[in-house]
Structure formats: structure tokens, C-alpha cells
């Protein structure tokens, strides 16, 4: 990358050397709460909070953290797509993020929306983007500092980079061509079987039919998280996705859920924690597939992991 460092800014912050993280395929994609506490405020680092609840950040956040909201900032509701390179660059400038900034993202609900934001950052090729293991819950439960003070980041000069949808994103036609190959449905068992059209306790809306894409394995996304919200260990995750489900790191895998947010979490696990080489997230997910004329579906418990 051809970026001139200014004011002695490091190009990238050091990797977290925590032994648990060291077992993952790409430990540079995660940081622990203690690593973050130690590096908070250093130049070259921007912490981003991304939550399901759009107001949670306002109630208190990690000092210096900026907020990125999927609904209002990463999503283009008119085209049902992500923002384009120009809008993403504008957003990054407003948040004080440069192209070579180390971005650490954390959020509520086991980092579910944080992983989604990380996936979108990856569509734009932002190189150094990491998740805080355990997310907001881990930070808060350790009694670490929170503040309601809003940072006022200095605008950066982020380039307009064209989004690359070819590597980590799958569209409906890609899924049709992939039928028979490994597919992971990360929704709840009730959504997978077709009994529910949305998560329990969430609106029963979005799709005309209930069920799953033929041949998909059911692995609810939250199985990758331990009780404390942190990711399960490498051994546990290998046993789940490799052992129980029978996936292999050299296969092309497509993951999906209802709109692609929960499956971003599983995409992160397979890609960065287990080192799978080709995982795509089908963000059209069930709201598109379940409503599509002639798209084949299966009902029932199917090939459950």
C-alpha cells in the first residue's frame, strides 16, 4: 500500500499475542479486551461499535469509539444493496478512519452486528479490521470504562474504493449454481424447518414460504459463541464445523440466514478463525430465496448438525 505515514502514525497496530487467539487460523483478526484496553487511544487505531439496537451506543460506549449502524449507514434501502464506494469513503472520513487504520469492531448480541459490519468493511477491502472477542458484553462485564462522550474525529482522506462482491458475497444465481455443494443455514431450528419465518420473538415477516435451501446444514450461528459471548476455541469450532457438519477448509462454502447479518458471524468464524479459503455470504438469504418463484426449498429438520 502506498500510504505515507504522518505524525509518526504506525501503519498497523501489533497483533494480540493471546494464546487462545494464537490457535485460530488468522489470530490477527481478533483482539482481547485486555489488548484493547492497553492500546486504546493510540494513533492508527479506531474502535467502532455496531449494534442491533441503534441507541445502545448513546447509552455508553468504549471511550473514543465511533458508531456505525448497518440500517442507516451501511445499507442502501433503495437498491437493497450496500452503499457504494463513494458513500463508504464518506462514512469512513466522518468516522476518522483512514485506509491504513486498524479498525476494531465490537457490538451487542455476541458481536452479531459487529461481524456484519466487518464483512461489509471487507467488501471494500479495508485491510486491517478486527473484532473484539466477546464484544460489548465482555468489556462491560469486566467493569472496563464506558462513556457517553461522543468523539469528534478529525476527517480523514479515505479513497473511494469499488466494492468487490466477487469473493465473499453470493447472489441468488450463485447459490442456484452451487446447489449440491456445502451450504450452511445459520438460522434457528424453527426457521430452518419452515415452522417460523423469522427468529422466535421477532416479527413473522419477510418470506412467503418457510424452510431452507435444499441440502443446507443447520448450524445456528450462536453455536460458535461460548456462554460468555466470546468465540469458542479452535478445537471446539473445528469439532463443530469440521466434525459434526463435515465441512472442509478447501471447499467452497455458502452461508446464509434471513438477511445476511447472522451468517456474517459464521462467515467470520469459517474464514478467519478456521481458515476456510472460500466462504461466501448469501446476504439475499431467506428473504430473497423464500420469496423467489421456482427457487427450490426443503422443509423439515433435514440434515441437522
Amino acid at each position: 500500500m502506498c500510504v505515507t505515514a504522518t505524525k509518526g502514525d504506525p501503519v498497523s497496530l501489533p497483533q494480540d499475542s493471546d494464546p487462545k487467539l494464537g490457535a485460530y487460523a488468522h489470530p490477527e483478526r481478533l483482539v482481547t479486551t485486555s489488548w484493547l484496553a492497553e492500546h486504546l487511544g493510540e494513533p492508527g487505531l479506531v474502535v467502532v461499535e455496531s449494534d442491533e439496537d441503534v441507541l445502545l451506543y448513546e447509552t455508553g460506549h468504549i471511550p473514543g469509539a465511533v458508531k456505525v449502524d448497518w440500517h442507516t449507514e451501511l445499507n442502501d434501502p433503495v437498491t437493497r444493496d450496500y452503499v457504494d464506494g463513494g458513500r463508504f469513503a464518506e462514512l469512513m472520513r466522518d468516522k476518522g478512519i483512514a485506509r491504513d487504520t486498524t479498525v476494531v469492531i465490537y457490538g451487542d448480541k455476541n458481536n452479531w452486528w459487529a461481524a456484519y459490519a466487518l464483512w461489509v468493511f471487507t467488501l471494500f477491502g479495508h485491510e486491517d479490521v478486527r473484532l473484539l472477542d466477546g464484544g460489548r458484553t465482555a468489556w462491560v462485564s469486566e467493569g472496563r470504562p464506558m462513556t457517553t462522550d461522543k468523539p469528534d474525529p478529525e476527517p480523514t482522506d479515505y479513497p473511494a474504493v469499488e466494492r468487490d462482491d466477487s469473493r465473499i458475497r453470493a447472489f441468488k444465481d450463485d447459490v442456484l449454481a452451487h446447489l449440491g455443494g456445502p451450504l450452511v443455514d445459520v438460522r434457528t431450528p424453527g426457521e430452518f424447518s419452515g415452522e417460523l419465518l423469522h427468529m422466535p420473538d421477532y416479527p413473522q415477516e419477510g418470506a412467503m414460504r418457510g424452510g431452507h435451501i435444499p441440502g443446507a446444514a443447520s448450524v445456528p450461528w450462536a453455536r460458535a459463541a461460548a456462554e460468555d459471548g466470546r468465540f469458542r476455541t479452535r478445537v471446539e469450532l473445528d469439532a463443530l464445523y469440521g466434525g459434526e457438519v463435515g465441512l472442509s477448509p478447501d471447499e467452497d462454502v455458502i452461508v446464509y440466514c434471513r438477511i445476511g447479518e447472522r451468517s456474517s458471524h459464521t462467515w467470520f468464524v469459517l474464514t478467519h478463525l478456521l481458515g476456510y479459503g472460500s466462504v461466501r455470504n448469501y446476504d439475499g438469504s431467506w428473504t430473497e430465496w423464500g420469496n423467489s418463484v421456482r427457487a427450490p426449498i426443503e422443509k423439515g429438520a433435514g440434515r441437522s448438525a
Partner: peptide, 9 residues
């Protein structure tokens, strides 16, 4: 719950 400020709002 307090962790759902939007819903509470």
C-alpha cells in the same frame, strides 16, 4: 430491558 434503549424509547 435497559440494553434495549430503542424499544424502551
Amino acid at each position: 430491558p435497559a440494553e434495549a434503549p430503542t424499544t424502551r424509547g
